[in-house]
Design a protein around this nucleic acid. Structure first.
Lengths: 235, 235
DNA sequence: ACACTTTACTTGTATATACAAGTTGTTCAG
DNA sequence: CTGAACAACTTGTATATACAAGTAAAGTGT
């Protein structure tokens, strides 16, 4: 078996099935006991997977009735742990690299402070424009500490999905993060990318992303053209 | 005992203690086993409380070491389940009623659709301005279906904390919800309340809030002066 | 003094079990 | 036919237990 915990594998499989429409919106998921048999697990394990699906808005649960499928969250689930690629779905998402990955020095990561080690090693910097159904919706700047990422810059000129890339090439899993959300007026650069009028409001997200590699975080600043796509979240 | 589950009571007590600074930021929480003794509970119960604290960013956990106190989330944790009052802390938060609760008819609740029943009964409508440290930061419009809330309008001319009021007067607990997040330019009303220039960007949240009472949801639209206070969340 | 092992902690995962509480359909008396 | 009671489900809560895996400090041998 993989070393990915059982409850996480079950969560991911169920989420995939819901996203793909295998379970119809509004219908009921198999009961917890049925899922136990299906996955050879016990209820607490199944419930841990369902808890997470509920937190992320894929299902709601009703005592006495069952787990009601709500489908993949509408709008953009970018506020959750998933990266942009997963939140939007790669078939709808195009990525255009504005600034290719390069080594830079840094003293701060947007509104987040850095450790001394992070400052010393510098960062890998790149900018991407993300298009949903052909329309530019996200512009994101990413800064990754230049630690133990051999051949990152030379190997990756285009990065369609950072989360997948880190997992596949470096075995680094994203665990979570924190973010600040602001409303700002689009600057010239953003106006150009999103084709907006001056003073158009956009959402700015400053994110610190925590990984499975202890002490290894990376940072991104995302501007969202939230006139077309509202960000969406559950709580 | 109250009918509030044990894991929830433990969660709330720990959160309170962390918020109040009883546990110092960066230090370790008592170990899970110690918490078991303290609260006369077993580890799965304690862990359920800690899971939630971790999701909401009050603690992080490290295997082999312990639960590290991160303190109350900086900025405004309004994206989580807590109401504004709890997210900000009532000592800092003032509430000014702009439109007192009154019965209105409705066909939609902001961007959310209503059921036929909800449309028929109409809603209780009110507007409030929330001031943090004396400065206006939130303007919220609330719409509550007029179902089984006797004497709501006559009894509550001022509503400093809606979540508390529903719990105390009607035994209704907030379970969660969903929200859409947008960036918009402040309209005249908002400009006045927040004392902003024309075209200043603000964050707009459309929220549907789900309660412990089956089928009973309420809705609010919140405008945030996010120039002063960034919204904050973990994922 | 240094490096290695051991030991005693910590959290992470998973099972097995029990009962409470809410929903829904069926059965049965009137 | 109607309505109340019941049975068979569902999820919610909680206990008790076991072992795995990571951390850190104490002990050990060189």
């Amino acid at each position: 078996m993989a070393d990915i915990p059982l409850h996480r594998r079950i969560y991911e499989q169920l989420r995939k099935h819901i996203s793909e429409g295998l379970y119809i919106e509004g219908s009921l998921l198999p009961s917890e006991n049925e899922l136990c048999s299906l996955h050879n697990a016990t209820r607490p394990t199944i419930r841990k997977a369902l808890d997470r699906l509920a937190v992320e808005g894929f299902i709601t649960r009703q005592q006495g009735k069952g787990s009601i499928v709500k489908g993949a969250p509408k709008g953009v689930g970018i506020l959750s742990i998933t990266g942009t690629t997963l939140a939007i779905g790669s078939e709808k998402l195009d990525t255009k690299t504005i600034v290719k990955p390069e080594i830079r020095s840094w003293k701060k990561a947007f509104s987040f402070e850095l450790t001394e080690l992070e400052k010393e090693v510098g960062c890998i910097y790149f900018e991407r424009l993300r298009l949903v159904n052909g329309k530019p919706v996200f512009f994101d700047i990413t800064m990754i500490p230049n630690i133990n990422l051999p051949r990152f810059v030379s190997r990756n000129h285009e990065i369609p999905s950072l989360f997948n890339m880190l997992r596949e090439q470096y075995n680094i899993e994203v665990k979570g993060g924190e973010q600040k959300i602001m409303a700002v007026n689009a600057n010239k650069t953003i106006q150009n990318h999103f084709q907006l009028k001056p003073d158009a409001p956009v959402i700015q997200l400053d994110r610190k992303i925590i990984t499975s590699k202890p002490g290894f975080c990376f940072y991104s600043q995302v501007f969202c053209n939230a006139q077309e796509y509202a960000l969406y979240g559950t709580f």
